[in-house]
Design a protein around this nucleic acid. Structure first.
Length: 423
RNA sequence: GGAGGGUUAGCCUAAUUGGUAAGGCGGCGGAUUUGAAAUCCGCUGGGGUUACUCCCUUGGGGGUUCGAGUCCCUCACCCUCCGCCA
């Protein structure tokens, strides 16, 4: 959610931002109209309430004196009726306004390149060289099935397409990755480990910005009106909802391992094989609450924290800056990290690091009191995967595969695995 | 699932039979001071307005009333106990 400032004083900035993102800016006119209507009703209602408050004091006083107040009360009954009418109108206008306002995405940071979709994202740099193979590298689903560590047939029977059963060293590798990620971020990068619920109420999904726009992307438990989270970000954005934090406590750094659930509606036929795109996956998520002036430095730090994992795993990757057309709804600036997967011959997104500035903080009403002024301000929130496991799993199988279909385990994972290869 | 108790501002705590939320702490600003402490004064969340001595805010929503923290209904969350389950 944005400050109303953008609707009133900085309307051109808002319209320009929407256009850059490829949104229809016509919604702004409607919002302006509703906002004006809303304010008109507030003024009208305030005036009537002021009269009512004043006259009610007269009622109390006169009643104590034993005077006849029946006329006054009859008059006030009228005033109350009008107040009620106005309040009803106002509630309608406000709910319409809010509905539209919640659909407005964040304003892209000035450093974000303008572009219409993911084809216009910018590759900023590449780290590590893709390995030269003296044989044709196989895709992970072939390697995984042959090694008996991934079972797609059984998963399809149990749960349908886009699921996988991990077995034996496959399951262990998955668990090793999660533990390795958590250990690096808690020990080396100073994050506090958090294990949040993976089922959340709708208001939490609104706060994180996943509702209303991504309703179709989330699994919904109708009986209890709960959503399965698509990312730990959804839960973590609510950690300090409706709180005023101490300035000294910032930045607050959290790391969470959670399963993530995505319906992948509309992606039929895309990445149907293997575990590139699945309905349920594991992810270790970094999340920070910062002061506004620090958030862009923190964005770079978080990118480095996520990169550290790939460096330790010795996997080649590249950093991509998302253009305005591909930027996430809540994000003002995002870097993606893509790892090289030689078996499928593609760069795969394993992390997305975003600064939402105060966008989520407004929705979640998360603020801090600034010591120098004593005033409350919204914090900035940032999130980044550190990392998502399936595509890291893919990259390990495909990059560390041998000609005979066996896979070497990266050095740093061996203490977690207890073995040096999957054969 | 059943019974009872609770939710007041950043935190803590009040509020006769319904008369419009009182204090304390913390924080910020100011006065005083060589500086600090102490003391005193003001401010403290949201909104509207050219502006104000204006409006709103007692967990959410609704109702009764001229007027609701207070009475009624409903929902959420927390605590205690019972039942069920792990």
């Amino acid at each position: 959610m944005l400050s109303f400032e953008f609707l009133r004083e900085k309307r051109e900035v808002l319209i320009k931002a929407l256009e850059k993102r490829g949104y229809d800016a016509a919604i702004v006119d409607e919002l302006v109209k509703l906002d004006e209507e809303r304010r008109r009703l507030i003024r009208e209602g305030d005036e009537l309430r002021r009269i009512r408050n004043q006259r009610n004091e007269d009622v109390a006083r006169l009643k104590k004196q034993g005077a006849d107040i029946s006329e006054l009360i009859a008059e006030l009954r009228q005033v109350s009726r009008r107040i009620k009418e106005i309040e009803e109108k106002q509630a309608k206008v406000e709910s319409k306004f809010k509905e539209l306002w919640l659909q407005i995405p964040n304003i892209p940071h000035e450093s974000v390149p303008i572009g219409k979709d993911e084809t216009e994202n910018k590759v900023i740099r590449q780290e590590g060289e893709p390995r030269e193979f003296d044989f044709e590298p196989k895709p992970h689903w072939e390697l995984g099935e042959k090694l008996g560590i991934l079972d797609f047939k059984t998963a399809a029977k149990m749960s349908g397409s886009r699921f996988a059963v991990y077995k034996g060293l496959g399951a262990k590798l998955e668990r090793a990755l999660i533990n390795f990620f958590l250990d690096v971020h808690t020990r080396e990068h100073g994050y506090v480990e958090v294990m949040p619920p993976v089922l959340v109420k709708s208001e939490s999904a609104y706060a994180s910005g996943h509702l209303p726009k991504f309703r179709e992307e989330m699994y919904f438990i109708e009986q209890d009106e709960l959503f399965l989270i698509p990312t730990a970000e959804t839960s973590l954005a609510n950690l300090h909802r409706d709180k005023i934090l101490d300035e000294d406590s910032l930045p607050l750094k959290y790391v969470s391992y959670t399963p993530c659930f995505r319906r992948e509606a509309g992606s039929y036929g895309k990445d149907v094989r293997g575990i590139i795109r699945v309905h349920q996956f594991n992810k270790v998520e970094l999340f920070q609450f910062t002061k506004p002036e620090d958030s862009y430095d923190v964005l770079e730090q978080m990118l480095a924290h996520a990169e550290k994992i790939l460096k330790l795993l010795k996997l080649p990757y590249r950093i991509v800056q998302l253009c305005t057309g591909d930027l996430g709804f809540a994000s003002a600036k995002t870097y993606d990290i893509e790892v090289w997967a030689p078996g499928v011959g593609r760069w795969l997104e394993v992390s997305s690091v975003s600064n939402t500035e105060s966008f989520q903080a407004r929705r979640s009403n998360t603020r801090f009191r600034r010591k120098s002024t004593g005033k409350v301000e919204f914090v900035h929130t940032l999130n980044g995967s550190g990392l998502a496991t399936p595509r890291t799993f893919i990259a390990i199988l495909e990059n560390y595969q041998r000609k005979d279909g066996t896979v070497e385990i990266p050095e740093v994972l061996r203490p977690y695995m207890g073995v040096s290869e999957i054969a």
